[in-house]
Simulated assay, not measured.
Amino acid sequence: MEAFIYGFILAFSLILPMGPQNVFIFTQGINQPTYRKALPSILTASISDTLLILVAVFSLTMIADIFENLRPILLIGGFVFLLYMGWTIWKASAKERDQDPPATAKKQVAFAASVSLLNPHALLDTIGVIGTQSLIFSGVDKWLYMTATISVSWLYFFMLALLGRLIGHKDKNFIFRTVINKLSAITMWVLAIYMLFHL
């Protein structure tokens, strides 16, 4: 279960910051007339993250298996990247627009897919962090790790839209979103230190 717990905490720390993808889901929770109307964006973002994680884990595993000497380099790269991601998230502002009009289902799908699949930060998160961290594990542990990271995306996007409905209008000063970003950065730094024990 260590692999599952590690994957869950890692993915959760990566997905917490209010970047373009999360802000869009959060905004749909606020602006859609019902929770059900936000489902197109939630499902699209969840499926997109799943595809990115599968590609990241399997492609980097293949590369590391072919070039065994690359494994320590990739792990060190993942460690450095976690430190960097934590620092950028710590400094980032949580202030984003949250008063956009409700988007249609087609627009939700198109936008959620674009901010998921074409977002450099999302690609760096999945390949640079989730993919490289998967090299720590093998066999069943790798599958547990991957399952945990995927499950976080699904759970989080459903909860984020719900949170948007519940507290979005009350967070006028972005205090909640700022605290979330700080906690995410600290978690990434802790995981980076934990990763050193696997090098």
Rank of each mutant, 00 (worst) to 15 (best):
G77E: 06
V115S: 00
D100N: 12
F58L: 14
I66L: 13
I89Q: 01
I66T: 14
D65P: 01
M62V: 12
L70D: 07
A112Q: 02
L70V: 05
K106C: 04
S114Y: 09
I89D: 01
P72M: 06
K107L: 09
L117R: 00
S114C: 10
Y84V: 14
A92Y: 02
P72I: 04
K91Q: 14
I73F: 11
V115C: 00
I73W: 08
M62E: 13
F79V: 10
E96C: 04
P101M: 04
K107V: 03
L60H: 08
A112H: 01
M85L: 15
W90G: 01
P101R: 05
F81L: 15
D98E: 10
S116M: 02
T88N: 07
K95P: 02
T104I: 06
P102F: 06
Q108R: 07
I63M: 11
G77N: 05
L74I: 03
L74N: 03
I76W: 10
G78A: 08
A94F: 03
G77V: 05
S116G: 07
N69V: 08
T61S: 15
A103Y: 14
R97A: 13
A113Q: 01
A105M: 07
L83P: 02
I66P: 00
T61Y: 09
I63W: 02
G78C: 08
F58D: 04
F58P: 01
W90C: 01
F81K: 03
A94G: 15
I66F: 13
W87I: 14
G78Y: 03
N69D: 14
I73S: 09
Q99V: 09
I76N: 05
A113T: 01
E96K: 09
W87L: 13
V80E: 03
R97C: 07
K107R: 14
A113I: 01
W90P: 02
T61R: 13
A110T: 12
S59C: 09
P101S: 04
T61K: 15
D98G: 04
S114V: 12
S59H: 05
K107N: 15
L75G: 07
L70N: 06
L75C: 10
E68S: 14
I89F: 11
S116V: 02
W90V: 01
I89M: 09
L82M: 15
T104C: 07
E96S: 11
F111T: 11
L75Q: 12
W90T: 01
E96L: 04
T88A: 03
W90H: 11
N119T: 02
W90E: 07
T88I: 15
I73K: 09
T88M: 10
R97I: 12
L82H: 06
I76A: 13
P102A: 13
T104E: 10
P72L: 07
P101Y: 05
A112L: 04
D98P: 00
R97D: 15
L83K: 04
V115E: 00
S116Y: 03
E96N: 11
M85K: 10
S93N: 11
I89P: 01
E68Q: 13
L74P: 02
G78Q: 06
P101L: 04
K91S: 10
L82Y: 07
F79M: 13
I73M: 11
R97L: 10
N119V: 01
P102R: 04
L118E: 00
Q108F: 08
E96M: 13
I89L: 04
G86V: 05
F58K: 10
G77A: 11
D100H: 08
D65N: 15
M62K: 14
K91P: 02
G77R: 06
E96F: 11
